[in-house]
């Protein structure tokens, strides 16, 4: 069971143009920086990306948008990105907007082997268009399908060679769900250790879900909104 790969280039080497990818992260927090850079370098295109956001112009998925590698984005919020806006308005880029909790829960459904779930969000709005509605206990729910993705690419804080993963702070976000939902899951971690180092009580994603793992390099971890308070005098 060899899961450890040499780096991002090897981890993504068999991802073809036209693939459906899940990419972890919330804004620029907890995004798989190394794999995104490798995807940009590889230059594959026609990708469908399932990710809560689409990065900013010069970082995150924004880098893939600049090289016109993305055919379709499935996200809950896509502001903060001028090139995204240009491609969307010109019709080059297809965009499916999904409520954030629905996005997370559709990932969860995939992760737990469930074909679909009934969710409240979006009933009575345009999100409900074309979806089956069912009433449970007096409330109307939409039938939302699990995602079908080819590869999930996630970023964790620590991992071991068995593929066990631990996330840090709010960099967890969509990463565990997507890690568990990928047909093939690629995890880049800040620190890769031997089995037995990580306490089994504190594993967020067990290694069974992870197919490839490597220790990433040179994390930039860009901050979108740097907010601070003054030291009180």
């Amino acid at each position: 069971m060899k899961k450890v790969v040499s780096g991002a280039d090897e981890a993504i080497q068999d991802i073809p143009s036209g693939a459906i990818l899940m990419l972890g992260g919330f804004g620029l927090c907890g995004i798989p920086e190394n794999c995104i850079a490798a995807l940009v370098k590889k230059g594959i295109n026609n990708l469908t990306c399932i990710s809560n956001n689409a990065g900013v112009d010069d970082f995150g998925i924004g880098l893939m948008l600049q090289k016109k590698q993305v055919k379709k984005m499935i996200s809950s919020y896509v502001g903060e990105n001028a090139e995204f806006e240009r491609q969307m308005l010109s019709g080059e880029l297809e965009v499916e907007l999904v409520p954030q909790g629905t996005l997370a829960t559709r990932c969860m459904a995939t992760a737990y082997g469930m074909p679909a779930v009934y969710l409240l969000a979006g009933y009575g709005t345009e999100v409900a268009d074309g979806k089956e509605v069912r009433n449970f206990n007096g409330k109307n729910y939409l039938l939302e399908n699990a995602f079908n993705s080819d590869f999930a690419i996630v970023k964790a804080w620590k991992g071991d060679t068995q593929g066990n993963l631990i996330f840090k702070d709010t960099a967890r976000n969509f990463n565990p769900l997507m890690a568990m939902a990928g047909k093939i899951t690629i995890a880049e971690v800040e620190e890769l250790v031997e089995p037995g180092i990580l306490d089994p009580n504190f594993i967020h994603v067990p290694g069974i879900y992870v197919h490839r793992i490597f220790q990433g390099l040179h994390y930039e971890k860009r901050i979108e909104q740097r907010t601070v308070r003054k030291v009180s005098k």
């Binding site: 909790g101 997370a104 804080w157 702070d169 709010t170 960099a171 565990p176 860009r222 907010t227």
Partner: peptide, 26 residues
């Protein structure tokens, strides 16, 4: 003391307090 791994839903840097808990989006 900003930590890029610790933000709120508006993507602003924030802090935890004693008793805080993290979890995934689902």
């Amino acid at each position: 003391e900003e930590d890029p791994d610790l933000i709120n839903a508006g993507k602003q840097t924030i802090t935890t307090i004693p008793g805080s808990a993290f979890f995934d989006s689902a």
